[in-house]
């Protein structure tokens, strides 16, 4: 047989083949069991023609393989092209849950203080006047002791007006040092409006140890405020008065909206009031059996709703209690 002619014939046929089916037909014709080449190979008796026919077979096989793979590529591209989609169509909907904004803020604050080595205490909400007032050095005539300000259940039982009673319970139960925060619900006789709610959330912080100073309080609150409102925030402190701390100071954080230039959020002062704090009054330490000459401490309290209102620009505190999904799903 004419090797050269066969090779040329096959090459030409391959070139014209347009589909994998045609290539398979040609393979049967040129390389199949009863193809001229296979028959010839079977007939081979001498070494020389064997070499030349085998070379032809190899070369044909290579040519077929190359052509098939090229066509396969083309067909794959066609298939993929046919599968093309409008990627701007919406994806399949998963219904995602959301944590309440206050839970998110509570966790944020918890994590900040976990990082500082504090424990977290979940205090009780129905309290005695002993823990809510007496232990906190609130004088008998203090206005929050009156039923006009607080919600009483009995003469000496009320819904706690702040998270501070859990400080007293923790200190009574353990020796110093104490490093704790306590987030939770508190209650006041306030009629609900845009900025008031009879039920709201506070977080209380307390550190009692040897050598705790006002400087430690300032540093801790600076850390907290920057973690909540951004690293660029400044914190200043103003003298204030609370029965359970002495000295008492109030932290202001530089406004996160205007960087202190003045805007409606900070009432054009550049500063936003963030709560109360101070050095734990010696009377409070003595109440729980600590020696104020041995240990000192600081305490602070802030409202979680206030953070939500300020940082997330929630215009009305009642939105946090309505649970409208159009609100909740934003956070």
């Amino acid at each position: 047989m004419d090797v050269e002619k066969l090779e040329q014939e096959a090459a030409k046929a391959l070139e014209q083949a347009g589909s994998l089916e045609e290539i398979e037909e040609l393979r049967v014709r040129f390389l199949g069991r009863s193809s001229e080449l296979k028959l010839a190979l079977r007939e081979v008796r001498d070494r020389e023609s064997g070499i030349s026919l085998n070379a032809l077979r190899q070369s044909l096989e290579a040519a077929f393989e190359q052509r098939r793979s090229a066509l396969e590529q083309v067909e794959l591209q066609h298939k993929l092209m046919a599968e093309r989609i409008d990627v701007t169509l919406p994806g399949e909907r998963f219904s995602e849950g959301h944590l309440h904004l206050i839970t998110q803020i509570r966790r944020e604050v918890e994590d900040i203080f976990l990082g500082l080595g504090y424990m977290i205490v979940d205090g009780r909400e129905v309290e005695t006047t002993r823990y809510n007032f007496d232990g906190l050095n609130m004088p008998p005539w203090h206005p929050t002791r009156s039923p006009g300000h607080s919600l009483f259940l009995a003469d000496q039982v009320l819904l706690r007006t702040e998270t501070s009673p859990s400080q007293i319970r923790v200190m009574e139960a353990q020796k110093p040092p104490v490093y704790m925060i306590s987030p939770g619900r508190v209650y006041r006789r306030d009629t609900p409006d845009a900025t008031h709610s009879p039920v709201f959330h506070q977080v209380e912080g307390l550190a009692v140890d040897r050598g705790i100073s006002l400087a430690d309080l300032k540093g801790t609150l600076l850390h907290l405020m920057r973690a909540l409102f951004g690293e660029k925030r400044e914190v200043r402190f103003r003298t204030h008065f609370f029965p359970f701390t002495e000295p008492s100071i109030e932290p202001d954080v530089s406004c996160h909206m205007c960087d202190g230039a003045g805007c409606p959020v900070c009432k054009h002062s550049g500063w936003i009031e963030m709560g109360g704090s101070g050095i734990v009054d010696p009377n409070v330490l003595e109440f729980v059996g600590y020696d104020p000459e041995e240990v000192s401490g600081f305490a602070f309290g802030l409202g979680l709703e206030r953070i939500a209102l300020l940082r997330h620009r929630v215009p009305d505190i009642r939105l946090l209690w309505e649970n409208d999904l159009r609100f909740s799903r934003q956070f």
């Binding site: 490093y179 550190a207 050598g211 705790i212 400087a215 430690d216 540093g219 600076l222």
Partner: peptide
């Protein structure tokens, strides 16, 4: 008053 953290 400087900003410090408690020495733990």
């Amino acid at each position: 008053v400087p900003f410090t953290l408690p020495a733990r």
